[in-house]
Each structure stands twice: as structure tokens, then as C-alpha cells.
Write a protein that binds this DNA or RNA. Structure first.
Length: 426
RNA sequence: GGAGAGUUGUCCGAGUGGCUUAAGGAGCACGCUUGGAAAGCGUGUGUACGCCAAAAGUGUACCAAGGGUUCGAAUCCCUUACUCUCCGCCA
């Protein structure tokens, strides 16, 4: 969430950011509301602190009086302090209430988009940041989408996924499973080469972690929730990995922090149907390798560019046609300051599929996480957090299967062959 | 799942209602001392939110978390989390 101090001092900057997210004048009032509640909060605290200071002093005096044997005077003072307790209780309740109200308001305000983020309402307004400038693959008439290839070669079974778990769950088998595992290992090895430390985190997280990275409260309902244990299945490795640094004060020399991890990702994604979501296009559980960076604010945009390069490299090596979108204000996620989406061309479906989303959250997550660093003068500042998919597996599999299909089978990209142990699925 | 013992600052560790402003030690930083270092000595050493134009300063809260008792709680009571030991179960 945004820092109240920033909001108080720069209300117009915040409003300009919210306009980019298509807030109308009426909705913008949330900013003034926050400032008003904050003023109330500070005033309440000042009064409460004063009362508490007085009562602390009185308590001390009572102790001294008892020790001096002056019970009468002590009892008199006791009566006075007791009488003031009601007012303290009231003020405490009021302060508590204002603090909660302020937090609710702040949680409802999304991150301020970076200046580079284009205006726009939805996905149609996203800017093509880097187009695919070579010809798109041409497949023969006989080419089929990946769900048909999956059945033809018996490598992915959607029916069994549905039988065992439900619609939206898939089962990989044989060479399909091996391909999935090969991609995971390839992505992890590439991340390791780029200097990322590999993490295997818990796949279930507590509420504090889900709040820390911003899945709660705004994305409640998109996560699977284990009620008996009050735990959430992770929608992305970003959640457990970034939360390593919840409530942490780093030293400047701890930067750069580069972490990666493969996890299954669980998403409820209610309400989608049709060909858009067929096959692997949208599933409840998919594998993903994530890269996470914790950075000094002065470095975060440099690092963002570096992350884009890393993802480009992966797709180049796999030989998949891709383009990069810069998301517009209306499509940029709640917690991100800027997001670049990578889309891969899936030639049989003739569709672009999102396979990576790389974002700089600036201080929005770190403020929730209380993730800070100490500068050379010993002052504390919020760090910047960034993350990106490198990459999301299911859709990559779809594109690899479709784009590389031939009469004689599906050709495995060269870089993957050492990981799969076979060069063709037939 | 059952029984018991714990959780104090950067770390170790004392602390059973007011002489605690959290003892003592270690670490760290700075200074003195030294040819230089070690030892020794001295000083300082957290987080959050207020007040103040700001710095200086100052107030409040924080002894796992949240509630409660009391004029006053690290200390007493309740709930929860986590750690350890033993038993049970288990890949």
C-alpha cells in the first residue's frame, strides 16, 4: 500500500496516478478521505499520549507515596487516576478505530502507475512495447491445437484431470510429463546462471504472507483456502519468496537480492468458459518458475530491464515467437507500478498467450511487508520489490507443442533435448 | 493427537506487582591509550507512531502475538502462535 506520509504530502500526484487507472472525480475522493482520517488519527494520538503520560506520572507518585507510608494521599490520587480511565479507554477505542479505517482506505488505493504506463481502459489499450518483427510460423492445413496433439500422442490427459480433481485440472503423462519437467529444469538452470538463488518454499501460506504481497484483501476469492488451518494455496511463488523479507531491515550491502523458485501455482479463476480457456490456456494448477528481486530504489528500473532481458533470452533459446506488451493503466495489476507482459504466439490456435508478467512494485509491497534497508547514514527506507515469471509452464508447453508439430511428430527445441532425453514426441 | 517445559534487546542472559529508566556480559560504532595492534578505559548502541517549520529535543507504545486484572504488569489471569522434550501416528 502507499505510505500515508507520501499521500499526505503529494495528494495531487496520487490523484494523477489514480486517473491513469480510470478513477473518476467521485472515486478520487478516497484520497481526501484518507488525509482527513489521518488528521483525525494523529490528533487522537496526541491527546491519548498526553493522557497516558499524566497517568504514568500519577502511578509513579502513588508508588512513592505507598512507600513513604502516606496511604491517604495515595488513595486520593488513585481515585483521580481511576476516574480518568474511562476517557483513556474511549480515546484508545477511537484511535484504534481511526487506524483501522485508515488502513482499510489505504488498502483500497492501488499503486501509482509509472510515468511510462500508457492511459487505457483494458487489455485492448495495452501498448506493444516490442513487436515480433520476423514472420510468424506458418503451419500446414493439417496442424491442430495442442489439446488435440495432447490426445494424439497421449502426453496430456484433460479428462483424467477432471476425473481426479475437476475441470481445469490436467494430468501430464509420459513424454508430456518429461517435457514439463525439462522446462522447469531449463528455466531454473538459466536463472541460476543469471545469479539467482533457488528456493523451494512452502506452497501454503498464512494470512500475513498473503497480505504482505497484496493478494489479500483485494484478490481474496482467487486463492484456494484451507479453512481448517487458515492457510492459502499460493497463486504464485512470488508470495512465499517475497515474504522471506517480511519485517526485515536490510543493510545496503545486502543488495542485490536475486531469488528464483519453481512452484505449482493454484488459481480459482472463477467464471471463464469457452475456447479461450481450452486445453492449457487457463488451468487451476500450473507450474511456474518465478524470479524475485529486492532492490535499492535507485536500481530498480535498471533491474527491471535486466529481468526483461532474462525472459527474452529464455524465449529466444526456445525459438518461440513473442511480443512484449506494456500494460496500460486500466490493465496494470493493483500492486504494480509498471508491468510488462510477454506473449507467445501459439501457431495452431493463432493466438498470443501470456506466459510472463514482469513488474516493478516499487515500495507498494515493501510498505505492506515492512521491508526496509538502512542507508549509509543509518536512516531507514523502503526497498523496491520486483518479480516476473520466467516462465509460466502450461502455456509454454501449449506453444511448443503447436509450433513444432510436423507430420512425423513434435520436435523438441534443441536446448531442451539434454533435459528431456528425447528429440521428438511421436 | 496427548503430556510437560519454554519464547526477554544484535546475541547470551538476569528479572514472581512500584528503587527496572530491562541488571550483567558479549558484539558493534566512536573516542582515549599505543610505533601499530591486542588488552584496558570511556561514551554510545532497537522499532513504530506522535509533537516541533526542521534539527536538537520530547511524548507514547513495544519483553512471541492478542485480550484481561491493577493507580501501576516483562512479572498475575485468559486465548493463540511458535520452539524444545517425551508418547502416539506417519512418508
Amino acid at each position: 500500500m502507499l505510505e500515508i506520509k507520501f499521500l499526505r504530502e503529494n495528494p495531487e500526484v496520487v490523484k494523477a496516478g489514480l486517473r491513469k487507472r480510470n478513477y473518476d472525480e467521485n472515486a478520487l475522493q478516497v484520497v481526501d478521505k484518507a488525509i482527513k482520517v489521518d488528521a483525525d488519527r494523529r490528533q487522537s494520538q496526541t491527546s491519548l499520549d498526553k493522557l497516558l503520560a499524566e497517568s504514568n506520572q500519577a502511578a509513579k507518585k502513588i508508588g512513592a507515596l505507598y512507600q513513604a507510608g502516606d496511604r491517604e494521599e495515595a488513595d486520593k490520587l488513585k481515585a483521580i487516576v481511576s476516574a480518568a480511565k474511562g476517557e483513556i479507554k474511549n480515546l484508545e477505542a477511537h484511535l484504534d478505530n481511526t487506524e483501522k479505517q485508515l488502513e482499510d482506505i489505504l488498502l483500497s488505493i492501488p499503486n501509482i502507475p509509472n510515468a511510462d504506463v500508457p492511459f487505457g481502459k483494458g487489455e485492448d489499450d495495452n501498448e506493444v512495447f516490442q513487436a515480433w518483427d520476423k514472420p510468424l510460423p506458418e503451419l500446414p492445413e493439417s496442424a491442430v491445437p495442442h489439446w488435440d496433439l495432447a490426445t494424439k500422442y497421449n502426453i496430456i490427459d484433460f479428462g483424467l484431470g477432471a476425473k481426479i480433481a475437476g475441470s481445469g485440472f490436467v494430468l501430464f503423462r509420459g513424454k508430456g510429463a518429461k517435457l514439463e519437467r525439462a522446462l522447469i529444469n531449463f528455466f531454473l538452470d538459466e536463472a541460476e546462471k543469471a545469479g539467482y538463488e533457488e528456493i523451494i518454499p512452502p506452497l501454503l501460506v498464512n494470512e500475513a504472507s498473503a497480505r504482505g504481497t497484496g493478494q489479500l484483501p483485494d484478490k481474496d476469492g482467487q486463492m484456494y483456502y484451507a479453512e481448517k488451518d487458515d492457510l492459502y494455496l499460493i497463486p504464485t511463488a512470488e508470495v512465499p519468496i517475497t515474504n522471506i523479507y517480511r519485517d526485515v531491515i536490510l543493510q545496503e550491502e545486502d543488495f542485490p537480492i536475486k531469488l528464483t523458485g519453481h512452484t505449482p501455482c493454484f488459481r480459482r479463476e472463477a467464471g471463464a468458459h469457452g475456447s479461450e480457456v481450452r486445453g492449457l490456456n487457463r488451468v487451476h494448477q500450473f507450474d511456474k518458475v518465478e524470479i524475485v528481486r529486492i532492490e535499492h530504489p535507485s536500481k530498480s528500473y535498471e533491474v527491471l530491464a535486466e529481468m526483461l532481458d532474462h525472459v527474452r533470452g529464455l524465449l529466444d533459446k526456445l525459438g518461440l515467437p513473442y511480443r512484449i506488451l506494456r500494460l496500460c493503466g486500466g490493465d496494470t495489476g493493483f500492486t504494480a507500478a509498471i508491468t510488462y507482459d510477454f506473449e507467445v504466439y501459439s501457431a495452431a490456435q493463432k493466438r498470443w498467450l501470456e506466459v510472463s508478467s514482469v513488474s516493478n512494485f516499487e515500495t507498494y509491497q515493501s510498505n505492506r511487508l515492512k521491508l526496509r534497508y538502512r542507508d549509509s547514514e543509518g536512516k531507514r527506507h523502503l526497498a523496491h520489490t520486483l518479480n516476473g515469471s520466467a516462465l509460466a509452464l502450461a502455456r509454454i508447453v501449449a506453444a511448443v507443442l503447436e509450433n513444432n508439430q510436423t507430420e512425423d511428430g513434435i520436435l523438441i527445441p534443441k536446448v531442451l533435448v539434454p533435459f528431456t532425453g528425447f528429440a521428438v514426441i511421436n
